[in-house]
Design a protein around this nucleic acid. Structure first.
Length: 270
DNA sequence: ACTGGCACCTGGGCGC
DNA sequence: TGCGCCCAGGTGCCAG
């Protein structure tokens, strides 16, 4: 599913088609996502204009008068703008119909995603404890260094922790650590300041490049325009365990950290 | 406070 | 062809 670049690609794909449009009807076919979709969501959205589509971490916010619909795509979700009468397939859980005959359709086979609501005067608890955006100036190597002191957790798990920095998922954590020359299993507290400064730059660079490429399509990711992402061909280590390192030829190692596949080159990463 | 592990769920790919 | 098993882009929550 989507990591930050795929969510941002989705946001860019759908926003030109839905911003400024009025929501005419919200159809909820299956409300049991990771959390139940609030029963009053249709009432809160219908008749409202979508003023803007924002992204915070991997959450998309559809801003309307009075609040915002919060959408998370989980591991397998996607959002597409389609004609309102487009045939409904399995796992097409929600349609947000618009006043031009189109609809924003939420599809999510594994149902790890979410559709929630927050009013103008509140912030949903899911959004309150998030770290900085990785592509903002609030995120840098100094922050990683400071927050990691005395931490024993593997540096890969550390940078995937939303309390530290948001939006770094398994693909890009592997890639950024390779580019920075840091082994994923190294204790976060033992990584030097200089290495963290390089790592922060590598995280920013790989995410920005992936956004430029329209995200990474492994199996089923499609952007809001229905096109796959092209970053997969740029991946240097993710999914390549047992294959040769593209830099030095050493066979890439694959281990599990926090139950997630972690691939690295024992020669290029220390 | 920190850590590791489990949970949620479907589907694809593999070996037998 | 079918079955069982393992794996997958996330992340909140729990016990120790």
């Amino acid at each position: 599913m989507p990591e930050l670049p795929e969510v941002e690609t989705t946001r860019r794909g759908i926003s030109p088609h839905i911003e400024g449009r009025t929501i005419t009807q919200v159809i909820i076919r299956f409300p049991e996502l990771r959390w139940p979709i609030p029963k009053d969501l249709p009432r809160l959205l219908e008749g409202k204009i979508i003023n803007s589509v924002q992204r915070r971490a991997k959450y998309l916010l559809l801003n309307v008068e009075g609040g915002a619909a919060i959408i998370h795509l989980g591991m397998s979700g996607n959002l597409r703008v389609i004609k309102a009468d487009h045939p409904v397939a399995k796992h097409d859980h929600v349609d947000i119909r618009l006043d031009d005959g189109m609809a924003l359709r939420l599809t999510d086979p594994r149902r790890f995603g979410a559709l929630l609501w927050q009013g103008d005067d509140e912030q949903h608890s899911l959004l309150t404890k998030l770290g900085p955006e990785p592509l903002s100036d609030n995120f840098d190597g100094e922050l990683l260094f400071r927050l990691s002191r005395k931490r024993q957790v593997a540096v890969k798990n550390f940078i995937m922790d939303n309390h530290i920095v948001v939006g770094v998922g398994n693909i890009y954590a592997n890639e950024a650590l390779f580019n920075a020359g840091i082994r994923p299993g190294k204790a976060a507290g033992k990584v030097s300041k200089a290495s963290y400064e390089l790592l922060a730059e590598c995280i920013k660079a790989v995410l920005a490049k992936a956004i430029e490429s329209g995200g990474t399509t492994l199996r089923d990711f499609l952007g809001g325009d229905g096109k796959p992402g092209y970053f997969k061909q740029e991946l240097k280590v993710y999914g390549r365990g047992g294959e040769p390192c593209l830099v030095c030829g050493t066979t890439l190692k694959e281990i599990r950290l926090g139950q997630r596949a972690s691939v690295y080159c024992s020669k290029c990463q220390k």
